[in-house]
Design a protein around this nucleic acid. Sequence first.
DNA 1: AAAAAAACTTGATTTAAATCAAGTTTTATG
DNA 2: CATAAAACTTGATTTAAATCAAGTTTTTTT
Lengths: 231, 231
Amino acid sequence: MRMAFTVEKYHFGTESIFERLPVKDLKLLKDQMVRMEIKKDRVLFREGNYSRGIYILRKGKIKMFQLNKSGEEQIIYIYRKGEILGYRPLLSHEVHAVSATALDDCVISFIPKKYFLEILERSLPLSRSLLTNLAHEFAVWVNTFNVLAQQPVKERVALVLLILNEKYRRNNETQVTINLSRDNMARYARTTVETLARMLRHFKDEKLIKTEGRKIIVLRPAELAKIAEFY
Amino acid sequence: MRMAFTVEKYHFGTESIFERLPVKDLKLLKDQMVRMEIKKDRVLFREGNYSRGIYILRKGKIKMFQLNKSGEEQIIYIYRKGEILGYRPLLSHEVHAVSATALDDCVISFIPKKYFLEILERSLPLSRSLLTNLAHEFAVWVNTFNVLAQQPVKERVALVLLILNEKYRRNNETQVTINLSRDNMARYARTTVETLARMLRHFKDEKLIKTEGRKIIVLRPAELAKIAEFY
DNA sequence: AAAAAAACTTGATTTAAATCAAGTTTTATG
DNA sequence: CATAAAACTTGATTTAAATCAAGTTTTTTT
């Protein structure tokens, strides 16, 4: 028996890492934060390199991806405002398994590795908070994989539209305008731009979405959810 | 630039969670362990249920899988002796995102949720150890996904053979006998039994593997690695 | 504002892998 | 140990989605 579709199944929601912390621990982190700006298409970190610290995204979108055998980008996750990235390899003392680049001009709060690990050493609440969150990220990842690795392209595109519909939402507004290139959307749905265009046309004909230039507006998310999963 | 192929990229290696612990904390855990036996094909836990505790696999193999829209099993991971499972949902207070069933008759050490969480509450080393490990599992997962979700079937089958070659290895022996049904192997490589059989025939013709009845022996792992990835 | 470039769409064709079908081998059972 | 059942293999056909090709729309640059 499968559960009802919920977008939360596909979002990390790392915002809560810091929200759960006592004021004291939060202050330690905040004191070490450095403001950074990163322009569209610039690389934040690259697969195979060691993490320099953790990044809290304040403005813009960042794509996380891996390169496959043929050198193609496979988008794995898109981070939105409030989410935290780059901390996983710090915890396991490994290199980045993925790369990250900015989809727009971004503003980031950066905490250098040294300070972050020092604070982690002293703060049990931070350790517990990261543990909870990492376990959650894992579940998100498994759920995403189950659709993107296995379902036909129509299902995959429906899911990616629903995920993006959340990513591009601004505080509780009803109508969300998705503004991501077809190319990136195709890399996320693991298909080609041509096939993606055909799927979008199909969803448009069915009145599930509408487009304004290259921007997309999801009209009937519940119907897309039915396509992406049962419920 | 891609890194050299290493099987470690595809194994959780949870054995180390306990290895890193101080004797004191390890004893706390050991005192709460209960021995369990579970017969072939029996369910250990099911997607959507809450975790009852953590399982340390002592003998046998356990498959972790998710059911897709069409009700087909998608194998995600195969656990071998020494590996620990079921702890992720305990940490994030969520239900299992996956199911687990025994591939053989298994022996397990079980620690009930209550005791495990109590010990975790008190033990910073356990918290840190789990954090390190979970971060590592994440990287393993991303690496596996990158091949299984994206590469053609030949590459996927090559990778699954390499993974199984490690899973079925008994203390440093050179010749490993893989003993997994074609059906399960196909679900792991995300293909059909027929296509799997054709791939195995191909690898046999190329002298990369040999078979003894339904058992498989990998002869040239380095060649399979070249197929699964570049290096 | 015009021209060029990039991004996107639609149609025709090809192809990798699934499905369908039939046989063979291995394992389980009376 | 014979027979049945299950598991596996191989071949023929179909199909979903990629590729190839050509146009159209949008964005950027001069």
